[in-house]
Design a protein around this nucleic acid. Sequence first.
DNA 1: AATCCGTATAGAAGCCTGTCAATATAGGCA
DNA 2: TGCCTATATTGACAGGCTTCTATACGGATT
Lengths: 110, 110
Amino acid sequence: MDICCSPLAAAPIDVDQAAEVATAFKALSDPVRVRLLSLIASHPGGEAYVNNLIAAFDLTGPTISHHLRVLRQAGLIGCERRGTWVFYWVVPAALERLSEVLTVPAKTTP
Amino acid sequence: MDICCSPLAAAPIDVDQAAEVATAFKALSDPVRVRLLSLIASHPGGEAYVNNLIAAFDLTGPTISHHLRVLRQAGLIGCERRGTWVFYWVVPAALERLSEVLTVPAKTTP
DNA sequence: AATCCGTATAGAAGCCTGTCAATATAGGCA
DNA sequence: TGCCTATATTGACAGGCTTCTATACGGATT
């Protein structure tokens, strides 16, 4: 996953780039994943471990694990095992690129 | 649809707001819709009519119409009938709000 | 080594989505 | 009025997604 596009409104987006962008946004299309990303990103130190994340939802561990994998495969978060626990963190550059894609350039309407 | 949230990384997002944000991103989770939005946004004058949009895809009219409705219900585009044709335009404020949600605040990692 | 805790994977059920063909609606024109 | 074009809606089907239970894996502790 390597989002590399200029803003959507700047020029018609390439077919392949549209597919990449859509894949990234699909990772953000579920409320649980949005909350997970927010919980991880806003956690003190920028990291969180899975046990805390599971406790924040009325969902089973495997379901949270599934959503974390979707976010990871989209490149939005990274993870690392430290002993018994697994820590997750956000990848700020990925969020920033998506944010830029949605930027609306200076309006040219007369 | 009224996206009204601070950046995801600023604080844990509210459950209801997460649902709203996810709904908006879901509208952007399909490559066809990403391309449609980009085609409309980058069209001279900021408007496009459906006939041109259909011609840009190997899809049937009803399918494009369906995707346009999804984008419209998400508040990302607006439309108006002018005689025989229907014109579509983007809602810049909606894109900007989504862009802000993805903004990563100044890092506080020591 | 044996066991326990934390996390991930596998497989399945039910719902949601993208797409199409067929049909309907809305507006211009003869 | 009647017809033609442009767009939307309906209904149906295939495929994907979210969630669960059950199971497996990885590491620490006894």
